[in-house]
Computed example of a mutant assay.
Amino acid sequence: MAFQFQQPAIVQSSRVAFPKAELYVPVVSGLRQPAAQTAINNKIRQSERQLVQDQGSLSDPRAEMIGYFEIKTNEKNVLSLSLFNYAYTGGAHGLTLQESLSFDAATGKAFTLAELFKPGSDYVKRLSDLVRAQIAERQIETFEPFKSIRPDQPFYIADRALVIYFALYEITPYAFGFPYFPISVYDVSDIVNPNGPLGRMDAND
């Protein structure tokens, strides 16, 4: 299948500050469709606000909050990025939250994990099996034997890989950091939605 791709999006950093907090928020520009650009920026701002809310109060005198982002993919009409929010609100240490978003840069649509795969495909089992194999191979210590990802497990797209990840404390101790599980698009090509972002990553350049 042939795809027509526009130039990569322009992603700039915008500083947002309020008491005890400093956030660097991605702002997308340079897209052909203004409506798509608006939809993407609105979704990013909504996600940033949710991260701030999820961190809770900054009333502790020692509290602080820092926000930043990483671009994972910006090609083939796919923009995938991760938003991070670190906050210390009291206690032994701070906590970092992560929210990843993957967009169709031509339409502004934000993809769910299910939409990366063909309708009816048992993507949850396939991905869970691949994650479980990596846990064993990499000898990752988990709180309990790994069973399955969630149907809406967080993810991002990096080149020709789907990266599944878990929150801090979700399956591993805090000291491990975010557990990331890169899965090659070629390992799931039989169930990939050919019209979705992974289908584009799998397409010949």
Rank of each mutant, 00 (worst) to 15 (best):
E22F: 09
V52M: 10
P8A: 04
A17L: 11
A35G: 00
V27K: 05
P19T: 14
S14M: 07
S47I: 04
N42F: 04
P34Q: 03
N41D: 10
A17D: 12
K20A: 13
P34M: 03
L31M: 10
A9V: 07
S14A: 08
Q55H: 04
E48T: 14
Q55N: 00
Q50R: 11
A9W: 01
V27Q: 07
A21F: 09
Q12N: 13
K43T: 05
A21P: 05
A17G: 11
Q33N: 15
Q53C: 11
L23K: 03
V11E: 03
S14V: 11
N42E: 15
K43M: 02
Q7T: 07
V11I: 13
Y24F: 14
P19S: 13
L51T: 07
V25I: 15
K20F: 11
G30K: 12
Q46C: 03
Q46L: 01
V11P: 05
Q46G: 00
V16M: 12
I10H: 09
R32M: 08
A39M: 05
N42V: 04
P34C: 08
P19M: 06
L31F: 03
P8W: 02
I10G: 01
Q7C: 00
V16D: 09
E48M: 14
P19Y: 09
Q7D: 06
L23A: 10
S47M: 06
L51G: 01
E48Y: 06
R15G: 11
V27I: 12
Q7L: 07
Q37H: 03
A9R: 05
V52R: 05
L31I: 05
Q7S: 12
P8R: 04
V25R: 08
L23S: 08
P8G: 08
A17I: 08
I10N: 09
P34R: 01
V25E: 13
P26M: 02
Q53R: 13
V28I: 10
N42M: 10
V52Q: 09
A9G: 06
T38F: 09
Q55K: 06
R15M: 07
N41V: 00
E48P: 00
P8Y: 06
V28E: 04
K20H: 12
N41Y: 02
N41A: 02
V16W: 07
I40K: 01
A36I: 02
P19Q: 05
V16T: 08
A36C: 02
R15A: 08
P34V: 05
V11Y: 06
T38M: 10
R45G: 12
N41H: 05
R49A: 14
A17R: 15
I10L: 10
L23T: 12
P8N: 03
A35E: 08
A35C: 03
Q7W: 02
Q12A: 15
N41Q: 06
R15D: 13
P34I: 01
Q33P: 03
V25F: 14
E48A: 08
R15Y: 11
S47H: 06
N41L: 03
P26G: 03
Q55M: 07
Q55A: 05
V11K: 04
R49I: 07
